[in-house]
Design a protein around this nucleic acid. Structure first.
Lengths: 244, 244
DNA sequence: GTCAATTATTGACGGAGCGTCAAAAATTTC
DNA sequence: GAAATTTTTGACGCTCCGTCAATAATTGAC
């Protein structure tokens, strides 16, 4: 049923090519450097042709963001798999977040652009929905761990909190710290010298505060995170490579 | 020494008038609606006159952000004062944050715009420095509470964390949740029904996880936050009114 | 193999906002 | 009240956006 002519295939490939051209411009020079004229001339096409693929540059950014969030989702899935206790798999997802921010910094940056109100508001609701679905997917991966722990008794019942609201706190602290780190070049001047370690410790204390077993003291916890990072970073790199 | 002619006073007042005109445009219609032409025609001045006050519209936004952050700083100061235990004054600052987000929503929005890379990168380093100072001021208000608690023994020593890094975690979770709430209209669809209460609980658990006295269970904590809110909201409203 | 129909590409164009700057107007100084 | 200084003005050149009529390429029927 799905016949694809050579020409149609060429057009699909050009959509990919546009994304490949646009991404480094956005990453290196920001949104205002990313113009349709520039993408067109860079590819030796007329501007109108680019407009056949994307109705505006914001949609290009959102398409890049969709790719980025799919990669994030894969990393989360990889972190949540395995048969260790749920709290440790949760820690692995934390490590996946660190990996994503550090080693997939382009994708991380693209996600920031996506949250930019200018961009979000100008792009189509179709792509917005896809983004929301990716977001929900990541949320579900973590919420499943919470549910599992509640069932198994590792995590005492949450009186006033849904499992998703439990995840929301972790999401907020992780996300918040990453935004602050990215947008406050002067964290050191504020007295924050190692934000990554700081957030690791806060997550440990937070989960301890919820009584999530196994309870770990700070020292054990930091050691364990290092081990998980050493073990999982190669797997994450593999996933990153495959995500072409 | 500081002689001010009538004309100079008029010019200073006009700077204020520009801010008063620009703010509702930014709040109601966003950044791209805020144009120098529009501000000028709205005030019945030529565009060049506006450019005598601000070299670009981004600077207008940053100036609004400076006003906003000064208000935030005042609220923090008010929350940190008094002679109750430090942990409770910290909770009061949390309530001040909630007040700011809910009741000073315009200022809160302006702060979001300020973090927009387009705006930040185009504005002068003078204003950027002032913003950083406000940020540092707020940080210091909270960090002082941490130091005080460490000295008094309410808070066990932090092995791997500076007091500012302790604050960083609270900042991250508060800030992160507010951004997520503001930029994810679909939190309910994700299973997050009451993000404000959720973050209150997370803060309680986090501080409990650090062993910060007095330890409170969730129920006591939520009750106490309500009481603090009822007591302090009127004071905060007073500060808001005075902050013209 | 030809030609008409369909589809894709092109780039000039109108519109909008930015920031500038020489000329005009207002104000201050002497 | 005239010269010097300061302030205001708005037209201008620039860049980018998104459109669309004209042109070119492709397809498919015969």
């Amino acid at each position: 049923m799905v016949e694809i002519t050579r020409k149609q295939r060429e057009i699909q490939q050009r959509t990919q090519e546009i994304l490949r051209v646009a991404k480094p411009i956005l990453i290196a020079e920001g949104l205002q450097a990313l113009t349709m004229d520039r993408v067109a001339s860079h590819m030796q096409y007329a501007k109108g042709t680019i407009y056949n693929h994307f109705p505006n540059k914001e949609e290009i950014v959102l398409e890049l963001a969709i790719e980025a969030m799919k990669l994030r989702h894969k990393l989360f899935d990889a972190g949540a798999s395995g048969d260790r206790p749920a709290r440790m798999r949760l820690m692995t997802i934390g490590v996946a977040c660190e990996f994503y921010t550090q080693r997939c910094s382009e994708e991380f940056q693209v996600e920031q652009w996506m949250r930019n109100a200018n961009i979000w508001d100008k792009s189509s609701s179709e792509r917005q929905v896809i983004i929301r679905q990716c977001e929900a997917g990541c949320m579900q991966v973590v919420a499943r761990l919470v549910r599992e722990s509640l069932e198994q008794g590792d995590l005492p019942a949450l009186d006033h909190l849904s499992p998703e609201e439990m995840v929301f706190g972790l999401w907020a602290i992780t996300f918040g710290s990453q935004i602050l780190t990215a947008s406050s070049p002067s964290l050191e001047a504020l007295g924050v010298f190692d934000p990554i370690r700081a957030i690791r410790i806060h997550c440990c204390r937070l989960l301890n505060g919820f009584g999530w077993q196994p309870i770990l003291d700070e020292h054990q916890y930091l050691k364990l995170v290092e081990n998980i990072a050493a073990e999982y970073f190669p797997r994450f790199e593999q996933i990153q490579r495959e995500h072409r």
